[in-house]
């Protein structure tokens, strides 16, 4: 197979995404006419006010929702439903309570029919990568929120997806743990080939993590701005980032963009 280096990993072309739930009698338009390309191994962060449809956009890339119009492609191929090439890290972890941490992390490999010994070996490597080597025999309810999210990241990465879709993954953990997880995520991302599509409502988190930050307007969400984060990775130190003038400028700019629309 000839790999086209120019081919974007994810391409969203003029997509509109609607969803129904008990709050809306009619299908609710969450995202309108979004066009976007994410390159291989890029770290793209999406921010926007509550209800801007950022999670719906992620769900559509994951394959849980089908766009009403337009198209969403992975490696130039139309997305039809969920698949192992796009791993998802959910805000509420979604670890299976009836499986140990080790079995949760090896789950995707089990679905592929890999033997227990093989998948345990790979799962252990990813637990070590995510700093969870000692927790493999525990059940999810015995872990702290931060540890659960590490396990969820390990589970996604162990399955070797091309894209990791992260839906406000650190929103439910405390501030200290959150900073550690952010640093670890960047380290893990740099060690792998994975492309990250990360949704958050925190502007600071977006700037620390992202190569680019996409700002969505309030619902139905449209792309308001695409901001390049031109701070070198080596200069992104969480303990001093707040006093970096470039960080401050970006933070103010993106915060203004997000707030213009907030209800």
């Amino acid at each position: 197979m000839i790999v086209n280096k120019e081919l974007p990993k994810i391409s969203v072309d003029n997509a509109s995404i609607a969803y129904t739930n008990q709050d809306f009698a009619e299908p609710h338009l969450a995202v309108k006419d979004v066009t976007l390309e994410v390159s291989a191994n890029e770290f793209l962060v999406v921010v926007g006010p509550s209800g801007c449809g950022k999670s719906s956009l992620l769900a559509a890339i994951a394959g849980f929702l089908t766009p009403q119009g337009g198209s969403i492609k992975l490696n130039g191929k139309q997305i039809e439903g969920p698949g192992a090439d796009r791993g998802v890290v959910f805000q509420d972890y979604a670890l299976l309570p009836w499986k140990t941490v080790l079995d949760n992390v090896g789950l995707g490999l089990k679905f592929r029919g890999m033997s227990k010994a093989e998948r345990d070996k790979i799962a252990r490597e990813h637990l070590a990568l995510c700093g969870l080597a000692d927790a493999e025999a525990k059940y999810p309810h015995q872990l702290s929120g931060g540890m659960r999210q590490r396990a969820a990241v390990a589970r996604t990465l162990a399955n070797q997806p091309e894209v990791m879709l992260m839906d406000e993954p650190f929103a439910a953990v405390d501030a200290q743990t959150r900073m550690t997880l952010q640093e670890e995520l960047v380290r893990i991302w740099q060690q792998t080939e994975v492309t990250v599509f990360f949704v958050t409502h925190s502007v600071e988190e977006a700037i620390f993590l992202g190569d680019r930050v996409m700002v969505l307007s309030s619902g139905p969400g449209e792309i308001k701005a695409m901001v390049d984060i031109d701070i070198e990775r080596k200069d992104r130190d969480l303990s001093s980032l707040n006093s970096n003038p470039r960080f401050q400028a970006l933070r103010d700019e993106i915060t203004r963009l997000v707030r213009q629309d907030a209800a």
């Binding site: 394959g63 969920p82 592929r112």
Partner: peptide
């Protein structure tokens, strides 16, 4: 049953039977 468990499994490549 939280639908997120099913979605997580689908994203890990599970078949309907799995």
């Amino acid at each position: 049953l939280p639908i997120v468990y099913v979605n997580a499994a689908r994203s890990l490549g599970a078949t309907r039977w799995q």
